[in-house]
Amino acid sequence: MILVLNAGSSSLKIEVFDEGLRSVVAGSVTNLGTRGELKLGETASKVDTRDHAHALELMLTALAEASFPLSSFAAAAHRIVHGGAVMTAPARLRPPVIATIESVIPLAPLHNPNNLAGVYALQKMAPDLPQYCSFGTAFHATNPQVATRYAIPQTHHDAGIRRYGFHGLSYANMVADFGDALPEHLLAFHLGNGASLCAIKDGKSIATSMGYSPLSGLTMGTRSGDIDGAAVLRMSKSLGEDETDRMLNKTSGLQALAGENNMKTLLEREDDAAKFAVEHFCYWAARHAGSAVVAMGGIDAVAFTGGIGENAAPVRDRIMELLSFFGSLPVHVIRADEEKQIARDAFALIAEGR
Rank of each mutant, 00 (worst) to 15 (best):
V315Q: 05
S103D: 11
E270H: 06
I161P: 04
R234Q: 12
S291V: 13
L267F: 01
R344Y: 09
Q341L: 13
F68A: 09
F166G: 00
H190M: 11
G298S: 02
G306T: 06
C133W: 03
T88R: 14
F304H: 05
C198S: 15
R344S: 05
G309E: 13
A151K: 01
T34F: 09
V119R: 05
G309F: 04
K275T: 11
L254E: 05
V97C: 04
D51Y: 06
P130L: 06
S9L: 08
A289Y: 01
L5A: 14
R316C: 03
K46W: 05
H52D: 05
G259S: 10
A66Q: 13
R163Y: 09
I105F: 08
F68V: 05
P96Y: 02
L110F: 04
P214G: 03
F304M: 13
K201D: 05
L110G: 01
F135R: 04
G229R: 08
D337P: 02
S252N: 02
D128G: 00
N115V: 05
A343T: 06
Q341Y: 06
R354P: 03
V24C: 14
L322G: 00
L239V: 07
E42K: 14
L187G: 12
D158E: 15
V146L: 10
S67W: 11
A303E: 08
Q154V: 14
L186P: 15
F73Q: 08
I80W: 00
A108H: 11
T88L: 09
L182E: 08
G83P: 12
G33L: 05
S291Q: 15
S224W: 03
H288Y: 14
V331Y: 10
R22L: 10
K250W: 01
A207Q: 07
A274R: 05
A199T: 06
T251K: 15
R35S: 13
T244C: 13
G253S: 12
P95M: 06
V294R: 13
F68T: 07
V16D: 02
H157S: 13
S72L: 06
A230N: 14
R149F: 02
I101D: 09
I80A: 06
F73M: 09
A74P: 01
A258V: 11
R79D: 01
S45H: 09
G229T: 04
L169W: 01
T30K: 14
K201T: 09
H157A: 14
T100I: 00
A74L: 11
A207L: 10
G290T: 10
H185W: 07
L191W: 00
K201N: 11
T43D: 13
G307Y: 04
K204P: 05
A195Q: 01
P69D: 10
H167K: 03
P130V: 10
L122M: 08
F189I: 12
M320P: 09
